[in-house]
Structure formats: structure tokens, C-alpha cells
Design a binder for these strands. Structure first.
Length: 426
RNA sequence: GGAGGGAUGGCCGAGCGGUUUAAGGCGGCAGUCUUGAAAACUGCUGGAGCCUUGCGGCUCCCGUAGGUUCGAAUCCUACUCCCUCCGCCA
């Protein structure tokens, strides 16, 4: 959510951001409603002051044993008038809030302009492309042949897009997120949390998934709860409505959760294998930081995510997303894409964003600044990034480490988590 | 699921119709003292909004939403969450 004061003063910048991010919000209408609202507030405050003064006088008169009935009558009329004004305010405020919640964050100045993914900019590449002296197989073939991935039975149990990992495959999945959590907690200074996998509407709205993306969320209608699409939601909401001490900042959290996405707008896309699924595992990184440091913290966050891919020995590239490809709440985003030779594609395995104070304003997370006497209260900046998303990382491992006979070598860093196993074979 | 208790500022905690302009403590900030720090002492210190060049002024906020009243943290109703006990249960 943007600052209404900022919108009032910079409507053109807001209109630009709305257009660049392919959103549609009537800014003129918002500015008009806001002006109406402030006029109503002013009127009701003037009257309320009179009411307060009148009430005080009644109190004094009664203490002196004098008759106050005329004044009581007068105040009753005034009170009714105020209630009328406030009723109109009550109608106006939700309208303004609804518009505010639909305005996207403004892209940072150095974000490239562009309509879609084709305008993203490659920032750097890492790793060397493996040369195959045979035709590399896609992961679904490798996984099925090794009996570590069973898509048919996953679909039987639940539906397509719900993968079933078996045997070494299940253990590999577990090894991966344990490895990532250990790395981030032990080497990068993150505190591990294990949050609920269901969240309420306020949490979903706080991080910006609602109201825009409701069709993409799995929902438990009876309790108005949602399955988490990412650990970002429960973890960022951890400090909702809190004022943090500046000494606590920056706060780094990492969390494993399963993630659930309906992928409502993506039917027919990436239907084979487990590139795009409805349930997947992910280790997430979340930061609460001082505003001055947030872009520096974003660079560090990206490095922390990259470390995972480097240790796994996976070739990847880092993209800076253009205005049209960024998410609603983000002001700057880097994507990490791992190379998958079997499907012959770059796969997005991480998305790291600085939200500045956009989420902090929605979830009302502030900190007391030490500079001013008594401490001025300011919004924190929030960031998050995948560190990293599993099924696609698993794809990259299977496809990059495959051998001609269909077996797959296990990256060295994972072996301690695999009981020392070096090769997956039939 | 049943019975009871509770929710007040960054935290703890008093207040239960009208000097509440929300006591007091802790924490935070500044200062005195000190080689420095600690301790001690002194002062300042809730949040949101509106008006004002500034000084400052005003309004709202005591879990949430309604209601009663000239006036509500305080009384009434509903809801949410937390705690204790009972039942059920992985």
C-alpha cells in the first residue's frame, strides 16, 4: 500500500506505476474521495469539539446543582448531527481503502522499463554449461525410470500437479530443504521459523496476495483460511501490528513450508513433469530492515540464494526484472534461473524482492528510530526471496547430474543428508 | 464440545459514568557524575489523523463491531483471541 499523502502529491508517478505494472485503478476517483473524506473529517471534528465543551459545562452545572436541561437538549441535537457525518465517513473510508489496496508498488528508478519477461536484463551468469555426449533426458523420464517420482499416483491421490516422491526421491527432497535451512541459519545469519501452513485473510492481504490473487489461492471456505502460496505470507505477517526496537533490526528469518498454488491463469503451461505444480516445497528468506539499508540488503539476499545453487554446482543466471514483469508489491526484483538441460530451459528457482515500505504499511510494522528524542516511529522495509524453490532445483539436479545409463550423481553437499549415498540408480 | 477468567501505550500494570489531559513501574532518548562504562540522580518520552510558515491547536484510539448517554477505557449486546479446568483426540 502506498502512502495516501504521497499519492495526493504525486498522482502522475502513481498513474505511471499502475500502467507499467498492467493494473487498472482510478487515481482521480481516489483523489476525489480522499478530498471528500478530509472535508467530512474536518466538519465532524469542529462539531465534536463543541460537543466536548458542552458536556464539560453540563458536568460543571450539575456539580453546582444548577439546571442543565436546555444544554442537554442542545447537545443531543449536536450529537445526532455528528452521527450523521460519521455515518457518511464510514461509507467513504472502505471505498478509499479498496482503491488503495489495488494500487501496486512503484518500481525503483533503476528497474528497466518493459512490457514483459523479454525486457528483463541478465545481470550475471554463473557456472559452466555441461557438455553431453548423449541426449539428456527430461526429469520426468529420469524420475519415473528411477522410481523416485510417481506422477500418476500423485494424480490418483489428489490430482495432476501434486507430485509424489518415493524412496530416494523423497529423501532427496528432504535433504534439499534441510541443506538449505542449515546453510541459511549457520552461514548467513537467518533465524529459522516453522510457521502455520494456513493463514487468515488479514495475513493474505498484508503481504499483497489479496485482494488481487484470490482465484490463485487454495481456500478453506468454512473458516475463511488460505493455504500458504509461499512462506513469505506467514513469516512477513509475524510482526504485523508491531513497533520494533531499532536494536532488533535487521531481522532475518528463514522458513521451510510446502506451498500451494492453484495456477489459475496457467492451464496448459508446463504441464509435463514438475516444472509447474500445485504443491511444492520451498525455503524462504524474509528480512525486516531499516529503510536506508534495504537495497544493500536485497543484494545480500540474492547472494544468499545464489550460494545454494553454487554449492549444488548448478549453472544459473540472475535477471533483473523489468517493470511489466514484476510482482504487484515489489519495487525491485531479481530472479534466479537454473539451467535444465533435459527440458532445455532456464527454470525460475528464486525471486528476490525489496518491497520497501509497501508491505510494512499494509501490515503496520514499524520501528522506533533512535535518532530523535523519545524515538520517531517509521515503517520498516521488508524483503523476501526464495532460498530456493525445490521442485525446479530438483529438476536441475536430476537433469544436470544424469549419466548415460539413467542414473544420477548426488551433489556432494547433499550426501551427508543422504546417508552418504553418491548415486541414485535403479 | 462444556464451565469459568481475561484483553489498557514499546513492555508490565492501575483505573470500572464527568480534573483520564490514561496513575505508577520497566524500557528508550538526553543530561549530571565518571578516564570510559556501569550504578545513582535529573529531565523528556504512546499511536493515527486534521489545521498551522513556525510556535502551537484540535479530533480520534483502552481486543473488534454495534448500542445506551449531553458525556463511555468504565454500562449493555455480539464477535475474535488468550488463559485455567473438564470432555474428546494425534
Amino acid at each position: 500500500m502506498l502512502d495516501l499523502n504521497f499519492i495526493r502529491k504525486n498522482p502522475e508517478a502513481v498513474r505511471t506505476a499502475v500502467r507499467e505494472k498492467h493494473e487498472r485503478v482510478d487515481i482521480d476517483q481516489l483523489v476525489k474521495l480522499d478530498a471528500d473524506r478530509r472535508e467530512l473529517i474536518y466538519q465532524s471534528e469542529v462539531l465534536r469539539k463543541q460537543l466536548n465543551e458542552g458536556s464539560k459545562r453540563i458536568s460543571q452545572l450539575k456539580k453546582q446543582g444548577q439546571d442543565a436541561s436546555n444544554l442537554v437538549e442542545e447537545m443531543r441535537a449536536l450529537s445526532d448531527k455528528i452521527k450523521d457525518l460519521e455515518k457518511r465517513l464510514e461509507q467513504l473510508t472502505p471505498e478509499i481503502d479498496a482503491l488503495l489496496l489495488r494500487i501496486p508498488n512503484i518500481p525503483a528508478p533503476d528497474v528497466p522499463k518493459g512490457e514483459d519477461a523479454s525486457a528483463n536484463v541478465t545481470v550475471r551468469n554463473w557456472g559452466k554449461r555441461r557438455e553431453f555426449n548423449f541426449q539428456p533426458k527430461p526429469h520426468w523420464e529420469l524420475g519415473t525410470n528411477l522410481d523416485i517420482l510417481d506422477l500418476e499416483r500423485g494424480a490418483k491421490i489428489c490430482g495432476s500437479g501434486f507430485p509424489l516422491f518415493k524412496g530416494v526421491g523423497a529423501r532427496l527432497e528432504r535433504a534439499l530443504f534441510n541443506f538449505m535451512l542449515d546453510l541459511h541459519t549457520q552461514k548467513h545469519g537467518y533465524k529459522e521459523v516453522f510457521p502455520p501452513f494456513l493463514v487468515n485473510r488479514a495475513s493474505m492481504t498484508g503481504t499483497g496476495q489479496l485482494p488481487k490473487m484470490e482465484e490463485d489461492m487454495y481456500k478453506v471456505t468454512e473458516d475463511d483460511l488460505f493455504l500458504v502460496p509461499t512462506a513469505e505470507v506467514p513469516v512477513t505477517n509475524l510482526h504485523r501490528d508491531e513497533i520494533l526496537n531499532y536494536k532488533e533490526l535487521p531481522i532475518y528469518y528463514t522458513a521451510y513450508t510446502a506451498c500451494f498454488r492453484r495456477e489459475a491463469g496457467a492451464y496448459g503451461k508446463d504441464t509435463r513433469g514438475i516444472i509447474r505444480v500445485h504443491q511444492f516445497d520451498k525455503v524462504e528468506l524474509v528480512k525486516f530492515v531499516r529503510p536506508e539499508t534495504s537495497y544493500e540488503e536485497l543484494e545480500k539476499l540474492v547472494k544468499d540464494a545464489e550460494a545454494v545453487l553454487q554449492l549444488l554446482g548448478l549453472e544459473y543466471r540472475v535477471l533483473k526484472l523489468c517493470t511489466g514483469d514484476m510482482s504487484f508489491a515489489s519495487s525491485k526484483t531479481y530472479d534466479l534461473e537454473a539451467w535444465a538441460p533435459g527440458v532445455d530451459k532456464w527454470l525460475e528457482v528464486s525471486s528476490c524482492s525489496n518491497f520497501e515500505d509497501f508491505q510494512a504499511r499494509r501490515i503496520n510494522v514499524r520501528f522506533r528510530d533512535e535518532s530523535a528524542s523519545g524515538g520517531k516511529v517509521r515503517y520498516v522495509h521488508t524483503l523476501n526471496g526464495s532460498g530456493v524453490a525445490l521442485p525446479r532445483t530438483l529438476i536441475a539436479i536430476l537433469e544436470n547430474y544424469q549419466q548415460e545409463d539413467g542414473s544420477v550423481i548426488i551433489p556432494e553437499v547433499l550426501r551427508p543428508y543422504m546417508g552418504g549415498l553418491e548415486v541414485v540408480q535403479r
